[in-house]
Design a protein around this nucleic acid. Structure first.
Lengths: 254, 254
DNA sequence: GTTGACAGGTTGTTATGACATGCTAATGTG
DNA sequence: CACATTAGCATGTCATAACAACCTGTCAAC
């Protein structure tokens, strides 16, 4: 197996994708297919990878560093680099709902409840997410119901700043992934999110949408998502049904 | 001011602290004292910093990269590096409760409710945090009530693996910061955390401790914290009172 | 059998150098 | 004045090199 498989996983120097990114992708995929016993062993050493892929050690380290930042591996001086152990399962409210539910082996669903435009953000949003005066402005609004295997899981209100997405219209909100659309048309991707999570009781409207009782305990998440260049991408309020667990995986401390 | 101040903030090459860490600390502190207008401007360029501190560009980049990983700055090719904008306020359930409440300008309090030892983790914990068979083992248990300005905020159950903290006894749980103790005695620090957050109703016991009504909506957080080398540091269940917002700041996506 | 020194392998830190790529503002041209 | 070009500066990528710090297993000495 080895030689043949490895040949296909070579770094393309002509590609516009940096070599360290290509290597990181290769390693990430290899790690994903490891058995539990193999995960306990060290990855090939930096020198080994350097030789195998014909890259300098600096480039190899850059690839490993990016995997470490993602929380996929850790390095121990004198010992080597090792895959980390995934510690929680479940759905995160932070990444793409659709792809995450699907990766979890379940069927995601989305129903658009309402779309529109607004001159600014509602007061609750500016308060919860401490939006500064100058940061407000025209928004595109989107209200969706999220489902897993047909069961309503959350009511989501999203506000997208018109300034960042000039030609975006409510008509663009189709079946496809919203994030994919925004990445394709404007080349913008979410990189970070800040959130506030609080307990609350279901209002009559929410109870109707989520098919639960009024006053049932729900979880409310207020999020602001920014790009790598710290531009606000969207602001979201999500209301999750009781019994649903929000997953916060690989959160960096310190 | 300039010359004098900058002289004191020099990199000590004899120190055991790496130069890039020293520079990162200097920059982090400088950023913290910037006015809003100054925060909109770029930091000194890599070449500038390189000259100012007598470091190679690689070392400067390493410092900037670590600040970027923390979410404090971002870099834009062709333009420079810039401080990011803090987007949410509040208390995080993930870092040191004491220091975070204090930084927020409030007075933290902790009351130890119960300490003890156990042969293993309770079933709820192993289930929620999907603990593997071999990963269980003797634990030191600690139950605390957390307060802010005298108001009870959360009931926290923490389980620390005996294997990682050999000589730890319930008697060690004093007034001081638990994290500081663990760092001093065993040289271990939390680096990552995985969490599940879910809504629930207050039980009679919780309602008594938090001084709320039975069935009030509360927020339950299940967390497992690991060191940089992916060793389980502690597992915690926290139950937060209604009205309290859990902050998840600078969570990396993608 | 236990201990200690040591060799060899591993990651960590730092330097120098070169070129690629992207942005901005000045310059020049119509 | 409006617009295209361009020089200069910023970060991004990648190579080579050297030494430090740390860990593990081997082997000799006790």
């Amino acid at each position: 197996m080895t030689t043949d498989t490895r040949e296909r996983l070579a770094i393309r120097r002509s590609s516009s994708v940096p070599a360290y990114n290509q290597l990181a992708d290769i390693l990430e995929q290899q790690i994903a297919t490891l058995t539990d016993e193999e995960r306990a062993r060290a990855l090939p050493s930096e020198g080994e990878l350097s030789r195998q892929y014909g890259l300098s050690r600096i480039t190899v380290r850059q690839a490993l560093k990016s995997l470490e930042t993602k929380g996929l591996v850790y390095s121990a001086q004198g010992r080597g680099s090792f895959p980390t152990v995934p510690r929680v399962k479940g759905i995160s409210g932070f990444h793409s709902f659709t792809s995450e539910v699907r990766r979890n082996g379940q069927e995601p669903g989305t129903r658009i409840l309402e779309t529109g435009e607004a001159a600014g953000l509602p007061a609750v949003v500016t308060e919860k997410l401490s939006v500064a005066e100058g940061e407000d402005g025209p928004q595109v609004h989107l209200r969706r119901l999220r489902l897993i295997d047909g069961v309503p899981i959350a009511v989501e209100d999203a506000w997208l700043p018109r300034a960042l997405f000039p030609n975006l219209t409510p008509a663009d909100f189709g079946d496809g992934s919203l994030y994919s659309l925004l990445a394709d048309r404007w080349g913008l991707e979410p990189a970070w999110t800040d959130a506030l999570i609080e307990p609350d009781r279901a209002s009559s409207e929410v109870s109707r949408l989520l098919d639960i009782e009024i006053d049932d305990p729900v979880l409310v998440a207020w999020r602001v998502t920014v790009t790598a260049e710290d531009k606000v991408f969207e602001r979201v309020r999500s209301i999750y049904r009781p019994g649903f667990s929000l997953r916060v995986a690989r959160y960096r401390l310190g």
